[in-house]
Amino acid sequence: MCHTHHTMTSTRDRTSQHSSEMSKYNNYKLRPTSRNASPGQQKQRSALPTSKPRENGIIRRNFPIGELKISPLFVTRIIAAAMAIRFLIITLIWFTIFLTYGFCTQCPDDWLYYRNNCYQFFNESKSWNQSQASCLSQNSTLLKIYSKEDQDFFKLVKSYHWMGLFQTQANGSWQWEDGSTLSPNELTLVEMQRGSCAVYGSSFKAYTEDCSTLNTYICMKKAV
């Protein structure tokens, strides 16, 4: 009995020792390996940001070198500045036109003001004498070209209009209603047909015309 008990005790001790060794072995296998990082690796890891920096709720991203960074606010400001400049330019243009070509109180209603003179284009067709009388009734005269610089907008006229230029019977010279003689610097006179009156065409050219022919006409007078 004692031998048997001793044998059983020895067997139990071996079994217990074996179980203890197996448990240590298993614990050793299941334990996660932990390696101590070198100081350089720890410094490198600590330098890495754990999350993207935020300022006022906005994530700031680091763009690579050479990549253009344009914010929507910058684009909006550029557009607003361009529109403001465009508005200023348009305003200056209209102001200049008003001062140069403007319709103002210096001329009667529906008359065109241009460089201290008032002009009116009449669409009704009349003879030269009738056109002259119509202008006189409105305290004006038929058109006179006295300066290509001061009347440069007349180069754009395309149709024919009676003007205050006629041929005198005394010596056949051409003169204006105010008695001044036609100067080559004022306009070019082109003989189209026999006549002692002239119509204005375009590009500072006048054309001879029979005075009884019906044409539209232009009146002018000094602005007050």
Rank of each mutant, 00 (worst) to 15 (best):
W111N: 03
K222R: 14
T76L: 12
M22C: 02
G102K: 07
I145F: 07
L48Y: 07
Y217W: 08
W174L: 03
F98R: 15
G172Y: 05
L142A: 02
F153A: 08
T181S: 12
Q138D: 06
Y28R: 09
S19A: 01
I93H: 11
F98M: 09
D150P: 00
L182Y: 12
S127W: 05
S125G: 04
I85S: 15
A206G: 08
L48I: 12
T213P: 02
S159P: 04
E55V: 11
N27S: 06
F166E: 07
S180Q: 08
S46K: 14
I90T: 13
Y200M: 03
M220I: 06
G179A: 04
P53F: 00
G66M: 02
T50H: 13
N116L: 02
D210M: 02
Q175S: 14
F204W: 15
W94C: 06
F63S: 12
L30A: 12
Y160I: 01
I78E: 00
A37S: 03
L214F: 10
K222E: 14
W176M: 04
F204Y: 15
Y207G: 05
I89G: 08
Y113S: 13
K29P: 00
N123G: 05
S51C: 03
C135E: 01
E21K: 04
T208C: 06
Y146F: 09
S212M: 07
F98C: 05
V224N: 15
G40D: 13
A223H: 13
N116V: 00
V199S: 11
C135G: 07
T7L: 08
A81M: 09
H5E: 13
I78W: 11
Q132A: 05
R35T: 01
S38K: 11
A223T: 09
F166R: 14
K69V: 08
A47P: 00
Y28A: 06
C211D: 05
S125L: 05
R60S: 09
W94S: 12
A223C: 10
S140N: 04
C118T: 09
A37G: 01
M83K: 13
C107E: 06
K24I: 01
M8L: 10
E67I: 08
T9Y: 10
L68E: 06
F74E: 06
I79W: 13
K158A: 13
N215G: 02
N56A: 05
H5S: 10
N171K: 10
Y119S: 04
F204R: 14
L112E: 15
R115N: 14
M1L: 06
F204G: 10
R60G: 03
F87S: 15
L182I: 04
K43E: 04
Q151C: 00
C2T: 10
N116T: 07
Q130L: 00
Q175P: 02
R12C: 03
A82E: 02
D110A: 09
